[in-house]
């Protein structure tokens, strides 16, 4: 006698060829991603840059992403990693800043407080094994002191006069350590712009997930200024002389 085949509603059907303990999955990899963020201290504050590309794997999918933002008036935030997780963080921060505003006590969250806040969110999510797949660079001038900090998906934090995330930690950080380290209080704004553009140009030449359209920002005691997206001048003539790069 043939066994009776029982058809259950699809919501109750046993998953085929898998365990019936289907796990709830969290993000195991980033999807749409932004590459490096580069930042360093200079005379008046902190300079930061990130390009405008949102990559979908190897595809250059979104070419107008903004990865630098102001949190309040005096803090600058840069992001690399998953862009949807970044958007979640943006909403969280907006809620926090609104709550603080609603206190109506004349107090403003300083850069150090915002840095701690973001760090706690990141560490908390990693402790739930459900990380936000990002690295954040937080910058600002807090009570006359320049603050430049980093936090990633594990909750690792550090402060340093020069910070570069992702590919930038290999390509831009050595440049910054050479040019900036020990000169944080001397570098003028003009020089800072040149240094950061050099870093971004090097990254565009060598990082296949980088883009020559970028936004640059500075944060000083006066507040945050983020540029509109602009393009870097590049020269690919050198490629001819490198085997396997150009011709």
């Amino acid at each position: 006698m043939d066994p009776i085949e029982l058809r259950l509603p699809h919501t109750l059907q046993r998953p085929q060829a898998t365990s019936n303990h289907e796990p709830i999955t969290h993000s195991t990899e980033p999807i749409v991603t932004g590459t490096s963020v580069v930042a360093f201290k200079y005379k008046d504050g902190i300079m930061m840059a990130a390009d405008c590309l949102g990559s979908y794997g190897r595809m250059a999918m979104f070419r107008n992403e903004r990865r630098l933002m102001a949190v309040g008036k005096t803090t600058l935030l840069g992001m690399s990693g998953d862009i949807s997780d970044y958007q979640h963080m943006q909403h969280t921060l907006e809620n926090i800043m609104t709550q603080e505003y609603d206190m109506d006590d004349g107090q403003r969250l300083g850069t150090k407080s915002i840095y701690k806040c973001i760090s706690k969110i990141m560490y908390n999510r990693r402790s739930k094994m459900n990380p936000l797949w990002n690295s954040y660079v937080i910058a600002g001038v807090d009570s006359g002191e320049k603050v430049l900090g980093y936090v990633d998906l594990i909750g690792t934090t550090y402060e340093s006069p020069t910070i570069a995330t992702g590919y930038g930690s290999h390509m831009a950080q050595p440049i910054l350590r050479k040019v900036v380290e020990g000169r944080e209080d001397e570098i003028t704004e003009e020089e800072a712009v040149k240094i950061i553009e050099d870093c971004m140009r090097v990254l565009y030449y060598r990082d296949a997930r980088a883009f020559n359209k970028l936004t640059r920002a500075k944060v000083t005691a006066q507040g945050v200024e983020i540029t509109e997206p602009y393009s870097l001048e590049t020269n690919w003539d050198f490629a001819e002389s490198i085997v396997g790069y150009g011709a």
Partner: peptide
């Protein structure tokens, strides 16, 4: 039917 509510098992590549 051998069905039970999904339990939270996170066995993916993320290392904390």
């Amino acid at each position: 039917i051998g069905y039970s509510a999904p339990i939270e098992v996170h066995n993916h590549g993320f290392s904390p």
